[in-house]
Amino acid sequence: MSPDDWHLALGSLGPIAAGAIRGTIPLALFSFAGGMAIAVLVALMRLSRHRALVAVARVYVSVIRGTPLLVQLFVVFYGLPSLGLVIDPWPSAIVAFSLNVGGYASEVVRAAILSVPKGQWEAAYVIGMARRTALRRIILPQAARVSVPPLSNTFIALVKDTSLASLILVTELFREAQKVAAFSQEFMLLYLEAAIVYWVICLALSTGQSAIERRLERYVAH
């Protein structure tokens, strides 16, 4: 790399990092939080005895998994205004990403709940717990341990998918890189730099995943 390249790389690191800190990371965090709330709700609907709830949950998961995320994003941001519902770029992105994560993660949560042995439900009932209490205090904590690795996959995918938000005018990591690239015409350099920053974020997340797994596995015999 020439001295000019180094200069550009270091100079653009500021706006790209700012895009990550103000855009990519909060976008991923809020969307994941919203997505997990949806996921638990949809998983419980799928596991309920009411056929209507099961049907709604199935259709939801099917639609989310069967359509591209980019299309979902465009429906929320460009489509809803024609129904009179105008949402700003940021909330549009969070709504679309949350709905998307909710669909995928609900299957993870459902499988994790089913992986807890039936005896745990019965033991909870025997000590007098109602279904809701048993779920909250006995079943979900055990399901959480099982679901950390697959949910980490979902979260890491989400971090990278937030780059799509650049297409609905959200200022985030990739959009900052695009702006510098358009100005300097150094596409290879800027897009590689953006890729490296995404990678670093995901490396940090993987480290966090290991820490959470260790914490949740403290009661498992080795």
Partner: peptide, 8 residues
């Protein structure tokens, strides 16, 4: 099977 709560 004792069905103790493993996380407690």
């Amino acid at each position: 099977h004792d069905n103790l709560f493993p996380h407690k």
